[in-house]
Design a protein around this nucleic acid. Structure first.
Lengths: 101, 101
DNA sequence: TAAAAATACTCCATAGGTATTTTAT
DNA sequence: ATAAAATACCTATGGAGTATTTTTA
């Protein structure tokens, strides 16, 4: 169900405290982050963020979850770093090496 | 794009050396594992497994990838372990706690 | 030839986008 | 009133299944 990409969204929102700015950093629409993170929160049964219109911060539960979120993203990045046979110039701008995740 | 579930498929195939048995352990069809793992190998640009009809084993590249695959699955499991407000009896049999991943 | 994996085809769920509404400052 | 997030709605892609074909021991 849940992919790695939503974990990147969570990291970005936690870092920037703002869905719009996080969406920009992730090259996605704010509604995408909103929807995906809400879905994840649904799976987890508890919100990761407190939303106070322009002041978004992690809940205590969100703080608890962050180490795992980071681990997943870091492991995915390390896996992507192993890739072969991909020419960098064939990638879409801003996509880096992570289109698979 | 790529979810965590395919990482579980990779672990199962690596452990059991057999797509059919791995599929059984994952409660999925062999064709699902075959398709998903092939897609992942496509992303990575290199095969993870040598298929020799009933003797499936990791390639050297697959061996390299395994630590990351394990990290992702373990981190996902730790995240799932934080979940609240889910009644165990509402889960499908054999699904454990991981229907989100 | 027989077991196993790959492929073809299909269906449905989910990721993602645009436009709109709601909320809180 | 305004900026931000949530929601509604739609489309496209990917995950998963059944049935079939290919492969190889």
């Amino acid at each position: 169900m849940s992919g790695i990409r939503v974990m990147r969204y969570v990291l970005a929102v936690a870092k920037l405290g703002h869905f719009g700015k996080a969406a920009e950093e992730c090259n996605a629409a704010p509604s995408t982050l909103s929807g995906q993170i809400r879905r994840l929160e649904g799976y987890l049964g508890t919100p990761l963020f407190e939303r106070r219109n322009g002041d978004v911060k992690l809940t205590p539960f969100g703080e608890q979850a962050m180490p795992m979120v980071r681990s997943m993203v870091e492991a995915a990045d390390r896996l992507v770093a192993l890739r072969r046979g991909r020419r960098p110039q064939s990638m879409a701008p801003g996509q880096g090496l992570s289109e698979a995740f």
